[in-house]
Design a protein around this nucleic acid. Structure first.
Length: 278
DNA sequence: CGGTTACCCTGGATGC
DNA sequence: TGCATCCAGGGTAACC
């Protein structure tokens, strides 16, 4: 579920709760979600460690441990999330970080169990693995870097924006919002965008994501919540996702829900008038 | 190599 | 009500 704004909101909530704290123990309730460490060693490696930092890389949460004890990378993927308050569905808790002095718990929950918990021995091995699959962060990418990356592929622009190797952080909801703000059709060939269109695209990426962060992300149905269990407010103020049939904010024509080639299964919301395909 | 698809999972909504 | 079907915001391996 979570894209960059949701993970950034998670990290901002987790950081004050975890940074500098002693982890007495990590209980792993679903060993199949753990990679990079034998499940049998996880308890020992995760005991008596101090959390040095909590960061975000794209849609991933990176927890750095002090004294060279390693790095934990958590990929929430579709339905993963952290709770600082009692999770409403205890059966979905997959890992529990038990803190000491004072005692507290941080829960990682994931209904669909698609999330992953990766263990790395040190910052270097973690950085190598992360860099291999994560491009520049969508909040920080500079215009010419983005242009160069788009010029290298003839895929449609929407799947390109959602390719974490190209740009880290954008998923299905924010890709639609970004492409509408840039007035670009999601099926446009990435390498065929004009310099001015790349300017337009680059100019809207960070503002869209920052607006979503300010709203604490996007919540619908039983999905994402903040670490305090609150709903994100972005879908109350967004322009596209979930608004099929509603008037486009640009021209008033009805927003279309459709599928575009290159994105299996996922819906795309667009305004055919404001986002012409050529 | 670039691009596309299948698959991993489960809960909730929808439809008959 | 019960059951089947479809849908979902991600990531990666396998395939062509």
């Amino acid at each position: 579920m979570p894209e960059l704004p949701e993970v950034e909101t998670m990290v901002r909530g987790l950081r004050p709760a975890l940074r500098g704290r002693l982890v007495h123990r990590i209980d792993l309730h679903d060993p199949s979600m753990l990679l990079g460490c034998p499940a049998g060693e996880f308890a020992a490696r995760g005991s008596g460690v101090c959390v040095e930092e909590v960061e975000r890389r794209g849609k991933w949460v990176v927890i750095g441990l002090a004294d060279d004890r390693g790095m934990i990378v958590i990929q929430p993927r579709m339905t993963g999330g952290f709770w600082l308050v009692d999770p409403p569905r205890p059966e979905h808790v997959r890992a529990t970080f038990r803190l000491a002095n004072p005692e507290a718990s941080v829960w990682f929950c994931d209904a669909r169990r698609l999330g992953r918990i990766l263990w790395f021995d040190g910052p270097e091995s973690a950085a190598t693995a992360i860099d291999r699959s994560q491009g520049p962060d969508a909040l920080k990418v500079d215009r010419d870097d983005l242009a160069a990356r788009l010029s290298r592929t003839r895929r449609a622009i929407k799947p390109t924006l959602m390719d974490q190797k190209v740009l880290a952080g954008v998923g299905n909801i924010y890709a639609d919002e970004i492409l509408f703000e840039a007035r670009l059709h999601p099926s446009r060939v990435s390498a065929e965008l004009s310099p001015r269109e790349v300017d337009r695209l680059h100019a809207v990426i960070a503002p869209v994501l920052l607006k979503a962060i300010a709203a604490e992300g996007s919540t619908f149905d039983a999905g994402y919540r903040t670490v305090l269990g609150l709903e994100g407010g972005f879908l109350a103020v967004n322009s596209m996702y979930g608004r099929a049939g509603q008037p486009c904010k640009g021209c008033g024509d009805p927003i279309q829900k459709t599928k575009i080639p290159g994105l299996i299964g996922r819906p795309t919301y667009l305004c055919p008038r404001c986002q012409p395909s050529s």
